[in-house]
Structure formats: C-alpha cells, structure tokens
Design a binder for these strands. Structure first.
Length: 617
RNA sequence: GGGGCUGUAGUUCAGACGGUUAGAACGCCGGCCUGUCACGCCGGAGGUCGCGGGUUCGAUCCCCGUCGGCCCCGCCA
C-alpha cells in the first residue's frame, strides 16, 4: 500500500484544528492495543506521540496489516484526524483529544523482541542500556536530554557569535605534554616511534591564536584525559573553550555570566541574578571547607580555636599546642534526627574522610523555669535562646562560659547538634567540608530546583606536592600571578595568588580560567619555581614560548565543562545521561566494544609491539 | 592501586539452615475481545542462578579465585 504520497507530518504538528484533514505520519509503534475489531496504536516520532485507530469498517486492508504489527515496528500511516469520541480523551497525551483514523498503512520495518522495554523511567541495568544505546535513546528522558544539549550548544554559539567570537578548530593530533593528566597517545605511522597525544584541552593553541590576533576565540570541543572515571568524569568530554585578548579578569567573568543568563533565560525561562557572587578561595576553604562551595544550604564552618584556648579536653589542647585549629559546624535541628548510633556511624564516615575523630555536642534548652519567667514575648524568646546549654558528647569538658560564646558564634539553638574537628587547618576544613555535604545529602537539606552560581577567585598560584617533593602549579603553568604578588615569587611563592577564577554551580566546578602570562621573562620565572629546567620547558612548550616572544597580547580565557552543566540543568546524577554514547567506568564502550585488540599487521605498520603490562621489556 | 555495593527467566526483582519441580511482575508466543491508552480475559513457552575451582552424598546458596557493572578515595595542571 502506497502511503507516501502526502508529505510526512510530525505528531507534534497535529492538533484539534487539523480535524478532518488527511496526513501521513511515520514513526515507531510505542504501544499496541488489539481489541479484536479495533486496533489502537500509539505512534511515536521525535516530536511526540499520537493515537492511530485501525477500524475494519474504515479500511479492511490496513486493518489486516495492522494485525501483524508489534512494538517498535516502523510504520507509515495515512489517515484523517478526528476528535476522539466523548469520554475517551487521554489527558496524559498532548494529542489526547484527537486520533488518526487509519486509511492506509505500510510496515516500513519490523523489530526483533527488545532486550529491554522502552519506558519513560528505566530501571534497566546501565550496561545493557549502553550496549543497546540506540534503544535507550528512544526513551523520552534521554531524547529530551540530547535535544536540550543541542539547544544549549546552539545558544552558546548564538551568544558568542553575537559578541564577536570566532569559532576556530584546533588539532586533535597534537603534542604530548606530560604536565597534568595522562595523555591518550596516538602512534604515528609516518614517524616510527613517535606519538601524538589527544589534547587534554586546546590550552596552548588558543593562547597561540591570541598571538595571531584573533582576539576572541571559542570552540565547543572534545577534550581527552586518560584518568579514572567518575559519575561526572568521562575520558572524553566536551568543553566550551574561550580565550580573549586585551582583557581583564572581571571582563571575562562578566561575559561568562551574561552568557549563562542568556542561556538560562532562553532555555529555562529563568532570570539569573547578576552579578554572580564572588568568593575568595581562602574564604571558601575557611567557611565551606571546599574550593567549590555548595551554597544552597548554610551549615558553615566556624573557627572556634580561640574559645577553647584553655580547654580541659586533651584532644583540643594537644591540637592547639601543635598549631592546629578547632572548627565546628552546627547542624540545625539535628539533635533529634541523629540517634547515638547515627553519630557513631558518622565517626566512621569522618575517618574515611581523613579525620582523626568526631567530637559532638547537642544543644538543649535550659531549665524549664526560665521559659516561664514573666516578661514580654520578645524578651522571653531572647532569654530562651541565650539559655541553651550543651549536652552529650564532649559537653562535660566545655565550661559554661566557653559554651555561651560558642552557641552565640554558631547561632546555635535548642535542638541543634554541633560537630567539631581539631586538626591542621587543611584537614579540619576538608573533613568538615565533606561532612557538611554528607549530612546535607543524607538529611535532604538541599532544596531542589535551585541554581546557585558562585565565582571562586584568588586561588594560590602554587602548592607544594608532598608526592613529587616540589612546587606544582594549581591551575596550569601559564596562569598569571596577581600583579601585587609578583614580588612574592622569589621569597615566598607559595603564598602568591593567581589571576584565576572558577565558576561553581550547586557545589560542582563547572568552569575555570585565568589571565595568562604573556611575557616570556615571567613565564621563565614560573618554570624556574616549578623546577622545570629551561631546556625541558623548550622541549615541552617551546612553540608557546616562541609565540610569546613575538608580540603576544595580554590575554586570558576560561573553559566550561558542558557535560557537567547539562547534568545539573537536567537534574541527572551522571554526565553519562547527557552524553549520547558514554563509556563505562573501565572506559569501555559496550555498544561498539571499544577499545579492542588490533591486527598484528596494523601494529607492525606502526612499529608497535604489545608487551604484558608490568613486565620489563 | 584501595574501599563499598552488586550480578538469579528477555527485563526488574524475590528466594532457600546446603536437599525433589528456583518464583512474581512486565515482556514474549497462541487464542478471545469495537473505545482502549501500562487495555482486558484465557492458555503457554522461557533459567549454565556471571565464570572457574574447592568443601560436601548433594552448591544458585558456604569458601577461594576471576570477570563485569555502579558509587567513592587516590588520580583528574
């Protein structure tokens, strides 16, 4: 039966106003309901779902063909749109008031029995979903995620093109730079024994484009890092990479936030409050114990070392004598929520985080009679608040005076529970920062549908790597120091701050960048601090150093992790759900079965011999 | 490299001190049904209990190993 004479129409283009007209639809059979003399089909195309009715009395031929249909068959249907009989409308369908009365039907392709059912909410094991990814992507949620991604990318391009940016491609076959993460290597057939590396990011090339004079560059580009995977990390991932010349940190930051405001407005109809809040790296660590604070809930870290300077508690005393700090967080209304057993379990959690122990006290109301004192309602409350007391845990080691200052500083009230960490500042911040997130997640303190952006700036330029026993760059070696910190570089480089900035969304780092060094002399000094010998620097980054010596403009940039942003905007737990063909935790693709062994002949041509790992050649 | 969880029908799961025939739901196959929409009703098929070894009269269950998946730490400038 010829059904293709009419131009194909999508289900989403048909509505009540089409009643009486004839259309041709093509798509997949979502549901099939055979009632004997009447067959219903929910036809799915990428725009939506519409009900087709096959009636023997309308078309005997197509009715008989319809008898053969099964789920996920691909069909072409021609028929008239009609309103459904009263009482049979389906409110769950956008097209639920109408249906297609099938006149002609063609089965374009059949479908084997499916390895799993195609449902809105899949609880199918992810390995199977990835193996049959094309089926998984037929699910509405996955389809919507990828279409959302497409629109997101389009809006980025629209915004940046409007702002004078050029989209310029950079090489995938490039030079291995062993700084940073592990490279994926690609053997060169024409240069036996030599290897390209897939780029960890287009960092060096985008800087060189600035030297070329393009001034505003962007690229939505794949980056490759051969490191272990996580829910938010894939070996290949997509960055929005940007670089600009003659520009300062604040300009890059405001451009970036305008871009997000533009996208949020167009895509989500959400108006972002600009400018986005800015936090110093030092404050982020001090208050949130993290360089990517989740500001959707409070439970901030407080330093309470001074309160306990004469503490009788040995753990506190010892810690302070070793120049450590005592920090505390207050879990609002946590006292009743956490049983003694829960607190004991938290100790295990804290030890996993690297903490030595977990001190706690609950906050209780003071004597009952105080509450009944005769005074105004306002005063009664203030008395009530002031007369909280600590109990349980380490309460007996805390004097009333210490407790009063502590309660005041943490703004703690009856029913709260306070956790303490006494350790080096670094460990105490880190442990409490992680405990804070753990508690928030476990006890649902984070409000949904909230998008909290935050800039974190003034990162240190360097840190000391215990493992490598040397100073290493926190961002990358081309990051410019703060102008006022340049003189620190000789005497005390570890306290120098950099002109770098991370954009944080809901506690996830979604992007980061810096103003780059554009003077060869300063770059040489940084390499010296990083113990990179001039000849090694030449070997690794010689082409960049050359470029910087030929009139490099001041420049800087930023890069955003597109997958992570999309994961947050789509409320997914993993970036795999916003990537069409992601890899498993072992970096394998169950669909294509990559990576795989290759023929000896291929290896021979490349001059490569595979040896058993961990055995010496 | 390390820690945790996990693997039973096509799918999602249940199961048993170690003991005849390993269950349910959905899916699949056959039949019936003219207003369903996760259609319904009747009937049926479908299992190397991830793989290998051990203990045992007997293992899907216990032990050892191994492979895979997910989460996390390390790692990811």
């Amino acid at each position: 039966m010829e059904t293709g004479k009419l131009k194909r129409t999508l289900s989403g283009e048909i509505n009540e106003s089409c009643t009486g007209s004839e259309f041709n639809l093509k798509g997949w059979v979502m549901h099939y309901r055979d009632h004997g003399g009447l067959i219903f089909i929910d036809l799915r195309d990428y725009a939506g779902i519409i009900q087709i009715v096959f009636d023997e009395t309308v078309s005997h031929e197509s009715f008989n063909t319809a008898k053969k249909i099964k789920n996920e068959y691909v069909i072409s249907v021609t028929g008239k749109v009609r309103t459904r009989p009263e009482g049979t409308e389906n409110e769950n369908l956008e097209t639920g008031k109408i249906e297609i009365e099938a006149k002609a039907l063609e089965i374009l392709n059949e479908c084997e029995v499916l390895p799993f059912q195609i449902e809105e909410e899949s609880d199918t094991n992810e390995l199977l979903r990835l193996k049959y990814r094309y089926l998984d992507l037929r699910r509405k949620k996955m389809k919507d995620n990828l279409i959302f991604r497409s629109k997101f990318n389009f809006l980025i391009r629209e915004f940046l093109n409007k702002n004078g940016f050029f989209d310029i491609e950079t090489p995938f076959l490039t030079k291995s730079t062993p700084e940073g993460s592990r490279d994926f290597l690609v053997p060169s057939r024409l240069n036996n024994g030599s290897f390209y590396a897939l780029p960890q990011s287009p960092q060096l090339f985008k800087q060189i484009l600035m030297v070329s004079g393009f001034e505003k560059y962007y690229q939505i580009v794949r980056c490759f890092r051969d490191e272990d995977l996580r829910a938010d990390r894939q070996p290949e991932f997509t960055q929005l990479d940007m670089e600009m010349s003659f520009i300062e940190q604040k300009d890059i930051m405001s451009l970036a936030e305008e871009m997000f405001a533009f996208i949020f407005d167009k895509l989500l109809n959400i108006k972002l409050n600009l400018p986005i809040k800015i936090m110093d790296y030092d404050d982020a660590m001090e208050i949130y114990g993290s360089d990517k604070p989740d500001t959707r809930f409070a439970m901030q870290l407080n330093t309470v070392s001074d309160i306990f300077k004469n503490s009788s508690l040995n753990v506190f005393k010892d810690c302070l004598s070793k120049k450590g700090v005592i920090k505390a967080i207050c879990f609002k209304n946590g006292a009743d929520l956490l049983s003694r057993k829960d607190i004991d379990e938290l100790l295990t959690v804290v030890k996993d985080f690297g903490g030595k122990g977990l001190a706690w006290t609950k906050v209780a109301a003071a004597e009952e009679k105080l509450k009944s004192d005769k005074c105004s309602a306002h005063n009664a409350e203030s008395i009530y608040i002031q007369k909280c007391r600590l109990e349980g845990g380490i309460a007996k080691f805390i004097t009333e005076e210490e407790g009063d200052i502590l309660l005041d500083r943490l703004k703690a009230e009856s029913g709260d529970i306070i956790f303490y960490q006494a350790d080096s500042k670094k460990i105490a911040d880190m442990v409490l920062g992680r405990l804070r997130l753990y508690l928030a997640k476990k006890y649902n303190l984070i409000s949904d549908n909230k998008f909290n952006f935050l800039w974190v700036i003034n990162f240190p330029l360097f840190e000391y790597s215990e493992e490598e026993k040397k100073i290493v760059a926190i961002h990358h070696p081309f990051t410019a120091p703060n102008a006022e910190d340049i003189e620190l570089l000789d005497a005390n480089p570890l306290i120098a701050k950099s002109q770098s900035y991370d954009l944080v969304l809901n506690g996830e780092e979604i992007g980061g960048g810096s103003i780059r060094i554009h003077k060869p002399e300063l770059q040489a000094k940084i390499f010296e601090i990083l113990s990179i010998k001039p000849e090694d620097a030449r070997l690794k980054f010689g082409f960049l150093l050359d470029a910087l010596s030929f009139g490099a403009p001041p420049h800087g940039g930023i890069a955003f992790g597109i997958d992570r942003v999309l994961m947050l905007l789509r409320n997914e737990d993993s970036i795999r759900d916003v990537i069409a063909f992601p890899k498993t935790q072992k970096a394998q693709c169950p669909l294509s079965d990559a990576p795989s062994e290759v023929k000896y002949e291929q290896l021979r041509e490349l001059g490569i011999k595979v040896i058993e790992k961990d055995k010496h050649i």
